[in-house]
Amino acid sequence: MSRAALLVLADGRFPAGGHAHSGGAEAAVKAGRITGAGSLADFCRGRLHTAGLVSGAVAAAAVLGVDPLELDRATDARTPSPALRVAARKLGRQLMRAGRATWPSAELDALARQFPKGAHQPVVLGLVARAAGLGAEDAAYCAAYESVSGAASAVVRLLSLDPFDATGVLARLAPELDRVADRAVEAARAVVGDGVNALPAASAPLLEIGAEAHAAWAVRLFAS
């Protein structure tokens, strides 16, 4: 494998549409729950250990060859908010386009045929990582990092937060990100033997409620 492929995939400029989503940060800012770097760090930490862990495990399991349809259904069951299911499938479709163009593979073609409306983004991420020659750990890192990086950069725009402060938040989360990626890979390995019920199911009530409130707004800066 090429380690540099991970940099290409995890780069915020990889054209997979992630910049249009705030990971729930826009709703949290509006509700007054994120007001600066401190509350952004708490927000990101909560996202990392819930949505980030689940996405990391799903992506890692996809790299390990677990059936994408089963992973997609298990992700649905872990995503009760319909607004978040729609956003995740839209992101999955966009990542699919970018991934197929970047690392053409028969497996990605098959996945695109199986999910014309898009599979959940972490499922696609895992198979794109596989097509790029990356491993389960790489995919887990990528998913876990994406679970917080989008929120941090969105808050820079939403609150005019100093970009140095936002990046500092991400840097200080690094040790926890390592642990979440480890747990995600461990869970993914368990899924290979025990099935998708072994996936983590960590949930975040305010992310779900906030996503539904956000989806009902007439005007918003971010898609989710």
Binding site: P200, S203, P205, L206
Partner: peptide, 20 residues
């Protein structure tokens, strides 16, 4: 539906924060 909520001392970080 398959969801798990963890909170209180010793739960993964951020459980009482603005995302959870």
């Amino acid at each position: 539906l398959d969801q798990e909520l963890a909170c209180g001392p010793g739960a993964p970080g951020g459980w009482d924060g603005p995302a959870v």
